[in-house]
């Protein structure tokens, strides 16, 4: 294959690859939103996903001048277009992987899997990432472009730490074969080992945190669900919820959902009050407000004493429930 042939092909097909990549990005992001209802996907993904197609010069370089033995250099290069998903923890990687595997618009082949590589070469600490090649399952139209079946696109999934490592090593070590000295390689291997250990500790810490806040998180789920159902608005999930849940942690019963359900059904004027106040008052857009109506009704003195924010924010609840604020 000549340089000119590659150029002509790439000039005519680049748009197809870019459309395919855009389709993949949109599809995966949409599915992530469904898979992670309690999370903001823009928070889950630590870097914005930006599909990139190869510049002609690097395509030519890779196809003809890097000592790779491609039968058909243009066809065999599978990362002519690609994108990268960067997350915090290695456990998050598996969430994206799961999403990718459950979409049938493409056929997948795994190019690299750092976990497989760890098992295969337990003594080595080298570049780690998860690479998928996604090939369109059938010919289809997208954004006015016809994408043929089997068009490839590379999807890399990494943790932030793996990404940092790769940023450091990308152009200096990983690609060229033998330019770095053994000392530099050793240093970089050490840092990879450290990164792997750090990821383990992150996971452990996250697990402990999750276990410790299990009660609050369960309560938060229950309350969000009930808020949506009763008030009819999508609840916000700002940090103040956790502050409130943490303050009243001892009072959260296992039967919270039932308790609030019964309470709201009995005092059925409350949802309308919340909805009305939600227009201008931040706290009434948070699902924990339901909890506060319950607690103020049941144990006004204790609810007032335990309240972690300012009294003025609690006062409207006393008002709605017909309880004197100052005498409790």
């Amino acid at each position: 294959m000549t340089e000119k042939e590659i150029r002509l092909l790439w000039e005519s097909e680049r748009k197809i690859y870019e459309a395919w990549a855009d389709f993949i990005k949109t599809k995966i992001t949409d599915q992530l939103i469904i898979a992670l209802p309690e999370l903001d996907v823009n928070y889950f993904l630590k870097l914005p996903v930006q599909p990139r197609s190869k510049e002609l010069k690097s395509l030519v370089d890779k196809a003809l001048f890097r000592n790779k033995t491609y039968a058909n250099p243009y066809r065999d290069i599978t990362d002519k277009v690609g994108m990268r998903f960067v997350v915090l923890l290695s456990s998050d990687i598996r969430i994206i992987e799961n999403v990718i595997q459950n979409i049938d618009d493409w056929e997948i082949s795994k190019d690299r899997d750092f976990e497989d590589e760890r098992r295969a070469r337990p003594m080595e600490f080298a570049y780690q990432s998860l690479h998928y090649i996604l090939r369109s399952a059938k010919e289809f139209q997208y954004l006015g472009v016809t994408i043929p079946a089997s068009t490839p696109c590379e999807v890399q999934i990494r943790t932030l730490l793996q990404h940092a490592h790769s940023e450091l090593t990308h152009d200096t070590i990983y690609k060229p074969k033998k330019t770095a000295s053994p000392e530099v390689n050793r240093t970089i291997a050490k840092s990879m080992a450290l990164i792997e250990a750090t990821d383990d500790f992150f996971l452990l810490a996250m697990q402990d945190l999750n276990n410790a806040s299990q009660t609050e998180r369960n309560a938060m789920n229950v309350l969000s669900q009930l808020y949506l159902e009763k008030v009819g608005l999508k609840p916000e999930t700002e940090k103040s919820n956790l502050l409130i849940l943490d303050s009243y942690k001892d009072k959260l019963t296992r039967d919270l959902a039932n308790q609030i359900n019964t309470f709201i059904n009995e005092k059925d004027y409350i949802p309308a009050r919340i909805a009305q106040r939600a227009e201008s008052q931040h706290l009434f857009r948070q699902p924990t407000i339901l909890l506060m109506y319950l607690f103020v009704s049941l144990t006004p003195a204790d609810a007032k004493e335990t309240w972690p924010l300012t009294p003025d924010e609690l006062r409207p609840i006393f008002l709605d429930l017909g309880i004197s604020f100052d005498n409790n």
């Binding site: 017909g322 004197s324 409790n328």
Partner: peptide, 17 residues
């Protein structure tokens, strides 16, 4: 209106005088 109702509630609400 909230402030007005608050005055009433402090005076007339449950546990008020």
């Amino acid at each position: 209106l909230d402030a007005f109702c608050s005055r009433i509630m402090d005076a007339m609400g449950k546990a008020s005088r």
